[in-house]
Amino acid sequence: MDVAVVAAILTVSGVLAISIISKVRTRAGFEAFADAITGLRVSSARWSRPMAVAAIAAETVVLALVVWPAGAPVGLAAAVLLFGTFTVVLARAVRLGSTSGCHCFGPTSAPVAWRHVMRSGFLATASLAGLLGMIALPSVSLGSLDPPLILAAASAAGVAVVVLVWLDDLTWLLRGATPAR
Rank of each mutant, 00 (worst) to 15 (best):
M1G: 07
V3S: 01
V3Y: 00
V5I: 10
V5R: 02
V5H: 01
A7L: 06
A7T: 05
I9A: 08
A17Q: 03
I20G: 02
I21N: 12
A28W: 02
F30D: 12
F30Q: 10
F30T: 10
A32L: 10
A32E: 13
A34P: 06
A34C: 08
D35H: 11
D35S: 13
A36L: 06
I37R: 07
G39I: 07
R41A: 01
A45S: 15
R46G: 07
W47G: 01
W47H: 05
S48R: 13
P50N: 09
A52N: 08
A54W: 05
A54G: 12
A55Q: 12
I56N: 05
A57S: 13
A58C: 10
E59D: 12
T60W: 05
V61F: 06
V62M: 04
V62Q: 04
L63T: 10
L63R: 08
L63S: 10
W68G: 01
A72T: 15
A72C: 09
V74Q: 03
G75S: 03
G75E: 06
G75R: 06
A78K: 01
A79V: 09
V80N: 02
L81F: 14
L82T: 03
F83Q: 00
F83G: 00
G84E: 09
T85W: 13
T87P: 12
L90K: 04
R92E: 03
L96T: 11
L96F: 06
L96W: 06
T99F: 02
T99I: 10
T99D: 14
S100K: 06
C102Q: 09
C102Y: 02
G106E: 11
S109L: 08
S109E: 14
P111C: 04
V112L: 14
V112G: 13
A113V: 02
W114E: 04
R115L: 00
H116G: 14
V117P: 03
V117N: 02
M118L: 15
R119G: 04
R119P: 08
R119W: 09
S120Y: 09
G121I: 08
G121C: 08
F122T: 14
L123A: 09
A124F: 10
A124N: 11
T125N: 00
A126M: 14
A126N: 11
G130R: 11
I135G: 05
P138Y: 01
P138R: 02
S141E: 05
L142E: 01
S144H: 06
L145F: 04
L145V: 07
D146V: 03
P148T: 07
L149N: 04
L149G: 00
I150T: 03
A152P: 02
A153V: 11
A154Q: 07
A154K: 04
S155C: 07
A156I: 09
A156N: 00
A157Q: 08
G158R: 10
V159K: 12
V161H: 12
V161N: 13
V163Q: 10
L164E: 13
V165S: 11
D169K: 13
L170V: 15
T171L: 14
W172I: 11
L173V: 14
L174I: 14
T178V: 15
R181M: 13
